[in-house]
Design a protein around this nucleic acid. Structure first.
Lengths: 233, 233
DNA sequence: TCCCTCAATTAAGTATGACTTTTAGGTCAC
DNA sequence: GTGACCTAAAAGTCATACTTAATTGAGGGA
């Protein structure tokens, strides 16, 4: 799970990235290369490489005679996994979790509908396996095990949808689910209703009932939104 | 029109990025830094910066004693706007357009529902304005003008949803709509039914009717999918 | 024969200094 | 006040020397 943390430039990145996404430097703040050089005690090469990466994430913009300018939030590549991780680790984690949960609520039902049409027998089996795994771990403080199955379940749905863009949201969903478990309850067992819904989604997919898979998944995501007090349609 | 072409590293990037995303180098292909140096006739510094960016897009992975390895598609940051642009410019543009259109079909209806609850009066006015603009340009070979209003309309919806992740998909939708106009018809006027739907979505949002806005938008995206022969639920 | 260890080698990573290019911002003439 | 024209500041580029990690394969022991 830990990303490639080797290399000095990665160290600089792991310091600047979270700081910028946390809003420690407001938009328009200018960082000079030699200032950063001194601060991190590394060479220009290293700073420049880090800045290039931040620039490709649209967190900063580097201009001659000006310096490295922090860009406003609207410019950021908010789908960059690294940016998502930094923001989830920072102060506006709650807001971030809401944004991502709303995204989930839009994508996952459609993905489930597609999965019902396209899932391979193996994927159907995996779904059932993880749904049952969720049932098995849904009582008695087995939240860690439950989380594993929950994440795996949603990952399979997204992958089975056959859509590349959906599949790549698996990471995001994993982060959201992990974040929820870590931050929120941790002491209470999962909602039995949610567990049942997962089992029924697995069923619907296995039976190629796209409409039902979609509707049931919509219930799951509605539940996730309710947990975060997001106004539901 | 050409994007940020300033800087040698950008030039290298604009050559390597499209080539990799087009599959010219299969996954596992190894590029050596000094080879690239010679090929582009630039210094080590420049190549390294370009490679760092490609690495942050997860198109390649750079390892000591091995080289710069091209990663398989599943690793790519497919939400990176630059990656999206490169892929849309390349050979698998049709597949890419399909993926993105399916994503739209998941996101936009939900965004429209949220917009109906959250849009400011100004945004409502913009919606109406662009919907009427679409009507005005829907006949007599005014496709360019039509496209402008169409893109703007969807952008407003996504922005008015109040969700950052949705808002950032405005770029993607713009690319898809532009791509469709450029590639597909170009000679036939837009479908009048689609035009009407946009007008009605604007109405629904203005009247704060979330369910109707969502349903109507679903019709719009269903139409977009039908155009690409994507199996619809 | 097999496996382990270890050193050689290779290619990326880092540091540094000299130089180029862009451009914001001030200056001066008009 | 407006425009043209410097100046200097900061990023961009290059060449080179050096460091570090990891693959590879050769040698030695079981």
């Amino acid at each position: 799970m830990e990303n490639q943390g080797q290399g000095l430039h990665a160290r600089v990145l792991e310091s600047l990235g979270p700081a910028i996404t946390a809003g420690e430097y407001g938009p328009g703040t200018v960082l000079r290369t030699d200032e950063l050089e001194e601060r991190f005690d590394v060479s220009r090469t290293v700073i420049r490489e880090a800045v290039r990466v931040l620039e490709s994430m649209r967190l900063v913009s580097s201009r001659r005679r000006v310096g490295v300018t922090v860009l406003p939030t609207e410019e950021w590549n908010v789908y960059d996994p690294q940016v998502i991780r930094w923001r989830l680790a920072g102060a506006d984690r709650p807001r971030q979790l809401r944004s991502l949960t709303v995204l989930r609520s839009a994508v996952e039902p459609v993905a489930a509908g597609l999965a019902a049409r396209l899932a391979t027998p193996e994927q159907c089996a995996e779904l059932t396996e993880h749904a049952l795994g969720m049932v098995a771990t849904s009582r008695g403080q087995q939240l860690a095990g439950y989380l594993v199955h929950d994440v795996a379940f949603h990952r399979v749905i997204l992958r089975a949808s056959g859509n590349e863009m959906f599949a790549r949201l698996g990471e995001v969903v994993a982060e959201v689910l992990t974040g929820r478990t870590e931050h929120q309850v941790m002491f209470t067992d999962p909602d039995p209703a949610a567990v049942t819904l997962h089992v029924r989604v697995a069923e619907a997919v296995r039976e190629r009932d796209a409409a039902r898979a979609e509707a049931l998944t919509r219930e799951i995501t509605a539940g996730a939104m309710a947990e975060l007090d997001i106004l539901a349609p």
